[in-house]
Amino acid sequence: MIKVAMTGVYVDDVAAAHAFYTDVLGFETRTHMDLGDGTLFVTVGAAQGAQPDLQLLLEPGQGPVAEPYHRALYEAGIPCIVFSVADLGAEYERLRGRGVRFTHRPRRQGPVLAAVFDDTCGNLVQLVQPED
């Protein structure tokens, strides 16, 4: 069976993204390597081993492919990634209390409740809560 092991998200600044995704969102560091010349290889994942095999690679968003793609997603208002939460209302309030800027409050979108926030690193991120 094929499983997702890692997915990447382009960020403006890997170190700043690492701090946001761990200190603010609550992810844990899985890999943090200095590759030289100021290049970092950083992955994060869900805390407390919720998804031990799945990692999010925080990729430098500079370059001829990354920059236009990264910018176009943001300018179009398209989230670069979607995270699932058990209680969107509680997570929305927790993150707002930590200074996270949401582009829209939790609202019904088809079969889920959804909210979108700015990750401070050039991306919009969507949180969803499946409705039972």
Rank of each mutant, 00 (worst) to 15 (best):
F41N: 14
V100P: 13
L54K: 03
P106E: 04
T43V: 04
P79T: 04
A46Y: 02
E75S: 12
Q109M: 13
D23G: 01
F27N: 00
D37S: 14
L25P: 05
G122R: 07
R96I: 01
T39C: 02
E67V: 09
Y10F: 12
Q126T: 01
Q129P: 04
Q129L: 11
L88T: 02
R30V: 12
L57W: 07
R108S: 11
Y69S: 14
P111C: 09
G26C: 07
L124N: 14
E59N: 12
F83Y: 06
V116S: 11
V100D: 06
E75A: 14
H70P: 15
G36R: 11
A19P: 07
A5K: 14
L56Y: 00
A15M: 09
L73C: 10
E93F: 03
D53K: 03
G97S: 09
A50F: 00
I81S: 12
T120I: 07
G61V: 02
H104P: 09
Y74W: 01
T22I: 08
G63L: 11
E91P: 10
L88H: 01
R94S: 05
P52L: 09
T120F: 10
V24T: 12
M33K: 13
M6P: 07
E131A: 08
A66R: 10
G99Y: 05
A86F: 05
T103A: 08
G8D: 05
Q109A: 14
D12I: 01
F117K: 03
R98T: 04
T39L: 04
L95E: 05
Q129E: 15
P52V: 04
G45M: 02
Q55L: 09
F20T: 05
F117G: 11
D53R: 10
G122L: 00
A46I: 00
H70A: 04
F102S: 07
Y69V: 11
C121Q: 14
P68A: 13
A17W: 01
A19I: 15
V24M: 07
A66Q: 12
F20K: 10
D53M: 06
G49Q: 04
G45A: 13
R98K: 15
T22V: 13
T43Q: 14
P130S: 07
Q48M: 11
T43N: 14
R71F: 00
P106M: 10
K3F: 12
F20W: 09
V100E: 07
A15R: 13
M6R: 14
A86L: 08
G122A: 06
Y69H: 15
I81D: 08
P52S: 11
R96M: 03
P60H: 13
Y92D: 03
Q126K: 02
G45D: 06
R71I: 00
H70K: 15
D119H: 08
T22Q: 05
